[in-house]
């Protein structure tokens, strides 16, 4: 018998520090598989955020730089501009990318930086114990929206992919989910496309990944995956929002 599925080389042996059932781990593995499949691990520089994935530098088996909260796209810009032949990706949560780092992501996209952004939307601040994120759903209860998010005073959840796809500089933008095998397979394809865009030097690519946070949602991992299906996907539709213009 042959091994048909195993740990990608682009992941180290270090066990993930994520909670049981947290989708961060699936997202890591998919990115690592894509790096393996393109054979670019040794030419890749990743930038990890502040958030639960602050330790991602221990998990990805490639050169990694840790960013200040929200600043990963700016750091990735500095790296990519000085090493245009390296493959550069950021891995960011929704507090990181869509709140404190809004300016950095918008302008990296607008400049068409040739980097790939892996954006983990789990509708919450995981690391700090479950506060409201810009992506927290209307009515969702968190530590800082204890009576449910009231859009009238707390704003509506931001649809980052849709927002960024209005920018001409962005080349590839998609939203995927990891709540069931069929979606995981699609997510992998999308991440692969995003890196392909970078390899082809076509510009900015971002994959928004709807992801679970069983711990701070107060759900079991199985219930949390269901919650993604029932609550997140209806508000955050899956699909490609921007694809490279084919050169005729």
């Amino acid at each position: 018998m042959k091994k048909v599925f195993g740990r990608p080389v682009s992941l180290t042996d270090v066990p993930f520090t994520y909670c049981p059932g947290c989708h961060h781990g699936i997202a890591h593995r998919l990115v690592a598989e894509v790096l393996d499949e393109f054979g670019v691990r040794e030419n890749t520089i990743g930038v990890c955020p502040v958030g639960c994935s602050v330790f991602a530098y221990l998990f990805f088996n490639c050169d990694m730089v840790c960013a200040a909260h929200g600043r990963a796209p700016a750091i990735a810009t500095g790296i990519k501009r000085s090493r245009p032949d390296s493959i550069v990706f950021t891995y960011q949560g929704d507090g990181d990318l869509a709140s404190i780092g809004t300016a950095e992501i918008v302008h990296a996209a607008n400049r068409g930086e040739n980097i790939t952004v892996i954006f983990i939307n789990n509708a919450i601040y995981g690391m700090t114990g479950g506060q409201m994120a810009p992506t927290t759903l209307a009515g969702q209860i968190t530590q800082t929206s204890p009576y449910g998010r009231d859009p009238k005073t707390m704003g509506y959840p931001i649809r980052v992919s849709e927002m960024l796809s209005t920018l001409k500089g962005a080349t590839y933008i998609s939203r995927v989910a990891l709540n069931k095998p069929a979606n995981i397979i699609k997510a992998k394809k999308s991440i692969k496309k995003a890196f392909q865009v970078q390899l082809d030097r076509k510009g900015f690519s971002l994959v928004e990944i709807l992801s679970s946070c069983p711990t701070n949602w107060g759900l079991s991992p199985v219930e949390a995956s269901k919650w993604v299906e029932e609550n997140m996907i209806p508000y955050y539709p899956l699909g490609e929002f921007r694809v490279p213009e084919e050169v005729a």
């Binding site: 930038v47 730089v65 960013a67 750091i75 500095g78 790296i79 390296s86 950095e104």
Partner: peptide
Amino acid sequence: EIAAINMVYGAAAT
């Protein structure tokens, strides 16, 4: 300026 110094961070790291 926040982005600028972080671009410096990234470039200097290389």
